[in-house]
Design a protein around this nucleic acid. Structure first.
Length: 498
RNA sequence: GCCUCCAUCGUCUAGCGGCCCAGGACGUGGCCCUCUCAAGGCCAAAACGAGGAUUCGAAUUCCUCUGGAGGCGCCA
């Protein structure tokens, strides 16, 4: 398996039928990592042969999602390349030519069965508890006759002619060889009646023409791998190394995520869709790290990986074939961890949209100042406004209820405000070096607990019960405003006491 | 129903015959630290699905069962 040191040519080939989700993101990531690690080529190919399921916005979302994750490609629909076009919808004739070749050499045939007949046949088979498959009705129509019917305008599909006896052995890198009875391999349709090739044909053709060396794809393709092997063999082409990734299971581990369940997730602040995750306050470094470790591992203790670490350490040998349940609380862990690794100026810019979405007018200077102190206290970018929104308010409106600390009377809290005001106003500035030591002395002098005194000040100055650290925050707000707010709090407390 | 794949703590996983009465992480519980919320530190509970076989020795190899998953579209 040390073949991963040779430059590979790999591809991520999504269909533009929906949104990019975690599974797709991981498949793309592994392909990307293998390409980068080996100095190979990563290709993005859009598999849009099904115009019924085509979603106009999907290609853009896929591209944006991948870019957000930090994944880029060498060749693709948006940047071209020597083996283009990279949208299957622009390669129709290529597939048709190959299909014709298969027909001519006897490895495929025209089928004129109507969808109705097929449906009836399937129902009958299911009643008889057989596995649904094509009965071979058109398999032996002489080619000349079939061609006449085609020429006459009869509707047809093209089916691959699977062997009716013997076995086929295929090899997946993670699972080794697997052998299947050829009778289990249906005569799959490879070209639809509308003239478009199906995945089974199109993907094989493209992978060959694009000289793909390693196919890393989802394990939902495992069951059709024998078919793919047969098609490639019939064409006399070289087979790529097959790597089928395990599926992602819902958090309970019971089955794949359904549409309904995906929607429900959002209520808990989670999502399987990449663009949602971005809006939810997750940073791509965390998401990448998280999905990289679902189905792959490096050793028995390393778990924090930046993209460059992944490129260096990724290897096919450590891929795990068993299905993995999605664990969102672990994503939360990675998110907080990676947020704390961000440079303050980086974090500042990333927090910006979250503040503005909450209606705060931000400025870069303040953002940069608060970044280091919010950094330690948030698990997601979305938490920043709640933690530090007060920095962007001209005034705060603390409630009397919040100002009154546990175990203290209103009068005592007013007194705390009053004495703090006196003390702090006599200092040149307020920060952790000047102000905090003096205030701690005051706490002792008043015979109170730090939490009580600082609690009053926190609510007075920030208007919040939970905020960034007090003295760091006061330093940023500035002495003048801080004193103003403490005075207001005192007045509020005194007035409510009477 | 048929075919295929998978199987270590609740979850993600390390383990590729002796280093394992199984290691790490998330989560959970406790303690410490503490101006709030977090973070951090320390500790704890927590797993080799079952049964056979091979072997001096098995989580690691083989078989059976069980459980789970995926597929069986003119979708990808």
């Amino acid at each position: 398996m040390s073949d991963d040191l040779q430059p590979v040519r790999v591809r991520f080939a999504p269909s533009p039928t929906g949104r990019l989700h975690l599974g797709g993101g991981r498949t793309a990531l592994y392909n990307y990592l293998l390409a980068k690690k080996t100095g190979g080529t990563f290709i993005l190919r859009i598999e849009d042969t099904d115009k019924k399921r085509y979603v106009d916005s999907a290609e853009k979302e896929i591209i944006d999602g991948l870019h957000w994750l930090g994944i880029d490609w060498d060749e693709g629909p948006d940047k071209g390349g020597p083996d283009g076009p990279y949208r299957q919808s622009e390669r129709k004739q290529i597939y048709l030519d190959v299909a014709e070749k298969l027909i001519e050499q006897g490895d495929a045939y025209y089928c004129f069965c109507s969808p109705e007949r097929l449906k009836e046949m399937k129902e009958l088979q299911q009643q008889r508890k057989e596995f649904p498959h094509y009965d071979g009705c058109c398999r032996n129509i002489p080619l000349e006759e079939a061609k006449r019917r085609v020429a006459a305008g009869e509707s047809y599909v093209i089916r691959f002619k699977s062997p009716q006896e013997g076995t086929t052995t295929v090899k997946d890198l993670l699972r080794g060889e697997m052998t299947i009875d050829n009778r289990q391999i249906d005569d799959y349709i490879i070209v639809k009646s509308d003239g478009w090739a199906l995945y089974h044909l199109a993907a094989m053709v493209d992978d060959h023409l694009m000289r793909i060396t390693h196919v890393i794809r989802g394990s939902e393709w495992l069951s059709t791998l024998p078919l793919h092997h047969l098609i490639i063999k019939a064409l006399g082409w070289n087979e790529p190394v097959w790597i089928h990734l395990s599926v992602f299971l819902k958090p309970s581990g019971k089955g794949k995520m359904s549409k309904r369940e995906s929607a429900d997730l959002l209520k808990d602040g989670y999502s399987i869709f990449l663009t949602d995750l971005k809006d939810l306050g997750y940073i791509p470094e965390a998401v990448t790290n998280w999905i990289s470790l679902m189905g792959w591992s490096f050793d028995d203790h390393t778990e924090i990986f930046q993209m460059e670490d992944l490129i260096r350490d990724f290897s096919l040998e450590h891929l795990n074939p068993s299905p993995a349940a999605i664990n969102f609380t672990k994503l939360d862990f990675f998110n907080g961890n990676h947020i704390r690794r961000l440079a303050p100026e980086d974090l500042a810019q990333r927090m910006k949209p979250f503040f503005e979405q909450q209606g705060y007018e931000t400025d870069d200077a303040t953002l940069l100042k608060i970044a280091p102190i919010v950094q330690e206290h948030i698990g997601g970018l979305d938490e920043a406004p709640n933690m530090a929104g007060f920095f962007f308010k001209d005034s705060v409106q603390p409630s009397v209820e919040d100002l009154i600390q546990k175990g203290l009377t209103t009068e005592q809290c007013a007194e705390i405000a009053s004495r703090s005001y006196t003390l702090l106003s006599g200092l040149p500035e307020i920060n952790t070096r000047i102000g905090e030591p003096e205030m701690r002395d005051l706490v002792v002098e008043m015979g109170l607990k730090p939490a009580q005194v600082f609690g009053v000040l926190r609510v007075a100055v920030t208007g919040q019960k939970v905020s960034t650290p007090l003295f760091e925050s006061m330093e940023i707000i500035g002495k003048e405003k801080v004193l103003e707010r403490i005075k207001s709090a005192e007045i509020l407390l005194r007035s409510s006491n009477s």
